[in-house]
């Protein structure tokens, strides 16, 4: 008897069951953020925007205004993504295209770094930042986050550069370009899908980053949204309603961004130049 693929309906049911907890969690977040009180998944009372008063009331319970945290989060994610894309694409080009002493060793080390559990470095990083005077600054955390992500970025971009034809670069050299011009005008435009993918990935990863700012930032003026959200759990009375609202506020940009950027994210796994 030939093997038949299971019906679409069965596949959908199985996948639906597996994703159910995530769906329920999101629904709970939505309901809790919008109603006075929720019993389980059952809202009590009316729709109420009181949970969202952090948007207009400024400082609440000694927290900095949410707009400061939002600004910090955007600054953090954008700067990390920018540094990561810049350094990774240049390093990846060098590794993919140029022969220099220690290239293989360097490649191996990048791979090890990429696999290294970053959390185990936290104490050392703490001391390094203190010595450099960057402890408790957003810039310090940006540097740490970018350097931890760059190895992955280099590997990813190297794959894209490896797919470019040598002849095209040779052609550009003969046409009168310098090595730098070849990189800027020929190689870089052709790995645009890779840059967009890496940029999207870096933005999302930095947006969701919690442990690094949590360890390396103390003062409220440098808080990111992740720290703002976590601060609710440190209080004796946890305001779950407002916490859910902040959570939603924090997640909303990611939803939007993912909808716009998923095309490039998928590219990470397929790679390559499309003519």
């Amino acid at each position: 008897m030939p093997i038949r693929p299971p019906s679409w309906r069965l596949i959908l049911i199985v996948l639906g069951l597996i994703t159910l907890p995530i769906g329920v969690g999101t629904l709970w977040l939505l309901l809790t953020a919008l109603f006075n009180q929720v019993h389980g998944l059952l809202p009590v009372g009316n729709i109420n925007f009181g949970n969202w008063r952090f948007l207009w009331e400024g400082s609440i319970n000694g927290r900095p205004p949410i707009w400061v945290a939002l600004f910090n989060s955007i600054l953090f994610a954008a700067t990390v993504a920018f540094i990561e894309v810049l350094v990774a694409s240049m390093a990846a080009y060098a590794i993919s295209r140029m022969n220099f002493p220690g290239r293989r060793l360097y490649l191996g080390m990048i791979l090890v770094l990429h696999a290294f559990p970053a959390v185990s470095l936290l104490i050392a990083i703490y001391y390094i930042l203190r010595v450099l005077g960057l402890f408790d600054t957003l810039f310090g955390v940006i540097l740490v986050k970018a350097s931890l992500e760059i190895p992955l970025g280099i590997w990813l971009m190297k794959g894209f550069f490896d797919n470019l034809s040598w002849e095209m670069e040779m052609a550009a050299l003969v046409d009168g370009a310098s090595r730098w011009t070849v990189f800027r005008k020929v190689a870089l435009p052709l790995v645009r899908p890779g840059i967009l993918a890496l940029g999207t990935f870096a933005l999302l990863s930095a947006w969701g980053e919690f442990i690094l700012p949590y360890t390396l930032i103390v003062s409220g003026k440098s808080w990111t949204l992740a720290l703002y959200l976590q601060s609710f759990l440190r209080e004796s009375f946890v305001d779950y309603g407002m916490m859910a609202a902040v959570g939603l506020f924090y997640a909303l940009p990611v939803f939007v961004f993912f909808l716009l950027g998923q095309k490039y994210l998928l590219n990470i796994y397929s790679g390559g130049v499309k003519g």
């Binding site: 034809s165 002849e167 095209m168 052609a171 003969v174 003519g275």
Partner: peptide, 17 residues
């Protein structure tokens, strides 16, 4: 190469896509 004043056609044509 840029200072040699040479034109070249490659097997793959190597046009910039």
């Amino acid at each position: 190469p840029k200072d040699r004043d040479v034109g070249m056609v490659f097997q793959s044509y190597a046009l910039y896509p």
